[in-house]
C-alpha cells in the first residue's frame, strides 16, 4: 500500500500528535470532565488508523502490529479484572472502590476510577485498532 498524496501526509504528521495527546487527556481526566476510557480509547485508535490510512503499510508490518494489538487488548482486559480482583482480595468485595478518595477536582482522586479508565482505554483502543487491521488484511485475501 503506497499511501496518499504529499498534502495528506504532511497534514497527518502535524495533527496525529495532537490527536494522541487529546486522547490521553480525555482518558486521564475521565473522572473529572466528560470523556473517560471508552471515548479516549477510541480517539487513540483513531489516531493510529489515520496514520495507517495516510502512509500505508507493508503486509508483514501490518501482521506484526495486528498481533501486538490483540496482545494489548488482552492486557487491558486482564488489568480491568485485576483491579476488580485486588478489590476482592484487599477489601472483600468485587469492584469495591478501596483506594483513598482524595480531594475532589484533583487528578489523583476518586480511588480506582482513573485506573479503570486506563485499563478500559487500552482494551477499547487496541481492540478497535486490531479490527481495523484485520479488515485491512482483506485486500491480500481478495487478490489471491
Amino acid at each position: 500500500m503506497r499511501g496518499m498524496s504529499l498534502i495528506v501526509k504532511t497534514i497527518t504528521n502535524i495533527t496525529v500528535g495532537f490527536m494522541f495527546i487529546y486522547g490521553l487527556y480525555i482518558i486521564l481526566h475521565g473522572h473529572l470532565t466528560p470523556g473517560g476510557g471508552f471515548a479516549g480509547g477510541v480517539i487513540v485508535a483513531g489516531a493510529f488508523v489515520l496514520k495507517i490510512l495516510a502512509f500505508g503499510s507493508e503486509r508483514s508490518a501490518e501482521k506484526k502490529s495486528a498481533t501486538r494489538a490483540s496482545i494489548f487488548e488482552s492486557i487491558g482486559g486482564l488489568l480491568f479484572i485485576g483491579i476488580a480482583m485486588s478489590a476482592l482480595l484487599v477489601a472483600g468485595t468485587f469492584f469495591l472502590n478501596f483506594l483513598p478518595k482524595g480531594t475532589p477536582f484533583h487528578l489523583l482522586s476518586a480511588g480506582i476510577i482513573p485506573f479503570c479508565n486506563i485499563a478500559i482505554s487500552i482494551k477499547v483502543g487496541a481492540g478497535l485498532f486490531s479490527i481495523f487491521l484485520a479488515l485491512g488484511a482483506m485486500k491480500y485475501i481478495m487478490e489471491d
Binding site: 473517560g36 471508552f38 477510541v42 477499547v124 481492540g127 478497535l128 479490527i131 484485520a134 479488515l135 482483506m138 485475501i141 481478495m142
Partner: peptide, 23 residues
C-alpha cells in the same frame, strides 16, 4: 455510553461476514 462502542464492534463483525460472503 458502553452500547455505542459495542455497536461499532458488532457492525465490524457483520461487515466481516459480508466480505467473506462477497469473496
Amino acid at each position: 455510553l458502553t452500547a455505542i462502542v459495542i455497536a461499532l464492534g458488532t457492525t465490524a463483525l457483520m461487515l466481516t461476514v459480508i466480505l467473506r460472503i462477497y469473496n
